[in-house]
Simulated assay, not measured.
Amino acid sequence: MKIENYNVIGVMSGTSLDGIDLVYVNFSKDGKWSFLVKNSETVGYIEKWRGILKKATHLNEVELAQLDKEYTVFLAEVIKGFKLKNNLQEIDFVASHGHTVFHKPDQGETYQIGNLPILADLLGEKVICDFRVEDVALGGQGAPLVPIGDQLLFGEYDYCLNLGGFANISFDDSGVRKAFDICAVNTVLNHYVAKLDLDFDDGGKMASKGAVHDGLLKELNALEFYKKPFPKSLGIEWVESKVFPLIDSYNKLQVVDILRTYVEHVAQQIGAVVELPSNILITGGGAYNTFLIKRLKALTDAILIIPNKNVVEFKEAVIFALLGVLRERNEVNCLKSITGASKDHSSGKIYLPKS
């Protein structure tokens, strides 16, 4: 008989480089899965690490391997600090996403650092990690992986929309879960608001002061990615090669106008995906961008639900913990209907500590 109760540390580092999200969460199954977040924390990156991770896509193979080792050691220290701070004793395993350096599924490549076997040794815990690689090897996008958690934990909503480094959405379509990345969000907004010496645009206040530039907005909406059918996913290299050069070509635009135009672009791209009437669960850091939410409401007229802090800020960490539970049970945690892989499968590497 399978265990129906698990205590897991879930770990997630997003592309927006806000920091490392950690949760200590209990999962129980009584017909359906339920969860309780017992402890949660975001450990912000110091400037050194933020700078290193921003440049990681440009490293050669040897440099990247070295960074992987260093980041794995760093990640272990962060997780051990979380365990100690919260006096966590009952841990079935740690489920960790790692940090995405590049994601090129169309070329059969995806790489998340921090997923080396030494993580289990350093923590003295079983570790389940590296969830994307197998899916890409099976011809899938390796992303998004969160939607199966949306289905199992948040199935009462018409749409689950995450506004993080990228916007991704999942929904039920005639009994089949569908999901895909919509567009970049905080990877772009944070990049430009940094020119004002800010880490992020608090509440979208700076964007709200700007004006929409119709020419830039039209060109952003015309990007080829938006015409592709799903399954489809995005990585930071797409932003660096397609979005930044386009925005930077409008070199006379004020930062507030760039922010305002990009917020409108995000709201329009999301609005183009959502069918009405509907309710939308919104999570991720972008849920706190009240100006973006206001524009989204105006363009969709959907019911927008922003849940409690643990769900807004830590939903992805919770769901990667659930992916670990499903992998531990050898149950499907990756759906071909979402990623385009050749089959549904149970993805993730399992590492046991040597001692």
Rank of each mutant, 00 (worst) to 15 (best):
227 K>M: 01
127 V>A: 01
306 I>E: 14
198 L>D: 07
343 K>P: 09
103 H>Q: 12
256 V>K: 15
131 F>T: 04
30 D>C: 10
296 L>D: 03
61 E>K: 11
44 G>V: 13
252 K>G: 12
78 V>L: 14
295 R>H: 11
283 T>C: 02
346 S>L: 03
179 A>S: 14
99 H>R: 04
24 Y>K: 05
100 T>L: 10
115 N>R: 00
152 L>P: 03
11 V>N: 05
112 Q>W: 00
193 V>T: 14
185 V>L: 15
130 D>W: 02
153 L>C: 06
160 C>D: 02
348 G>F: 01
336 K>W: 01
91 I>W: 12
33 W>I: 09
335 L>A: 06
207 A>P: 00
90 E>P: 06
61 E>D: 12
207 A>T: 02
86 N>L: 06
265 H>M: 08
345 H>Q: 09
258 I>F: 00
15 T>Y: 00
105 P>H: 13
30 D>F: 00
309 K>L: 12
290 T>N: 08
314 F>R: 00
315 K>G: 12
187 T>G: 05
155 G>V: 12
254 Q>T: 05
309 K>Y: 13
120 A>P: 02
209 K>V: 01
326 L>F: 08
74 F>D: 05
60 N>H: 11
204 G>I: 03
135 D>Y: 02
293 I>G: 11
323 L>S: 06
330 N>G: 06
143 A>E: 04
73 V>P: 00
326 L>N: 09
65 A>Y: 04
338 I>G: 05
88 L>G: 12
112 Q>Y: 01
155 G>D: 13
182 I>C: 06
41 E>Y: 10
198 L>W: 07
209 K>R: 14
53 L>S: 06
340 G>I: 09
326 L>H: 10
81 G>D: 13
152 L>A: 11
293 I>W: 00
